[in-house]
């Protein structure tokens, strides 16, 4: 895993549920077929109500009309990010759209597990509420040595929390890689 992640912020509110991340009608495509699975990127975050899409202004599309990837690759979320269903298609869709990391105030359990165990995106938590301090489009840098987030536009820095117990799974790149490395499976 890279120790430095840089990218543009896309800011969302609280309780961004899995239907907003990938609406249920799109859960029919293959996740394994390289071409077909790109559709998940195209529809990532397409369920977010327009006024909540890209805070603080809103009305900023995450994906430009015909694209399958986004110019934004760091999501800043509020509390209970990823609540709702168990669909692993949600962190998968964000990964397909090019998202590298999410920094939220808190996560719903199954979404968090799926992001970590599937190795799709890095779910991090900040020490404070960031959705009012960072605007969509801001260039950010995440430092995973020191667990800091820097707003490159004004150099302000925020403290991130260590993932704690699940760090070995994150570092391995997912549950299967972790289980192989630690001899749990062949």
């Amino acid at each position: 895993m890279d120790k430095i992640i840089e990218g543009k912020a896309y800011v969302l509110g609280n309780n961004v549920d899995t239907d907003q991340i990938i609406p249920a009608e799109h859960l029919v495509y293959s996740l394994d077929d390289v071409e077909e699975s790109k559709i998940y990127g195209h529809y990532a975050l397409s369920g977010v109500p327009v006024k909540e899409a890209g805070l603080p202004e809103g009305n900023i599309p995450f994906i430009e009309q015909i694209n399958n990837t986004s110019e934004f690759n760091i999501i800043i979320g509020g509390s209970n990010f990823g609540c709702g269903s168990s669909r692993e298609h949600a962190p998968f869709a964000l990964q397909k759209a090019g998202v590298k990391a999410i920094i939220a105030e808190s996560y719903a359990r199954i979404f968090y597990r799926n992001a970590v165990d599937g190795g799709f995106v890095l779910p991090l938590e900040a020490d404070e509420k960031l959705i009012n301090k960072i605007s969509t489009g801001t260039e950010l840098q995440i430092d995973l040595e020191n667990y800091t987030l820097t707003d490159l536009s004004n150099k302000s820095t925020f403290k991130l929390l260590s993932p704690g117990d699940v760090l070995p799974i994150i570092n391995a790149g997912g549950l299967f890689k972790f289980a192989r490395a630690s001899g749990l499976i062949a």
Partner: peptide
């Protein structure tokens, strides 16, 4: 592989939802 798997807990058992990777494991 469904968040409402917790329904079964009405029968005095532990039940919970997981994603595809955990289920594959």
């Amino acid at each position: 592989t469904d968040s409402h798997t917790c329904t079964s807990g009405a029968f005095g058992l532990f039940s919970t939802g997981v994603g595809n990777t955990d289920a594959a494991f």
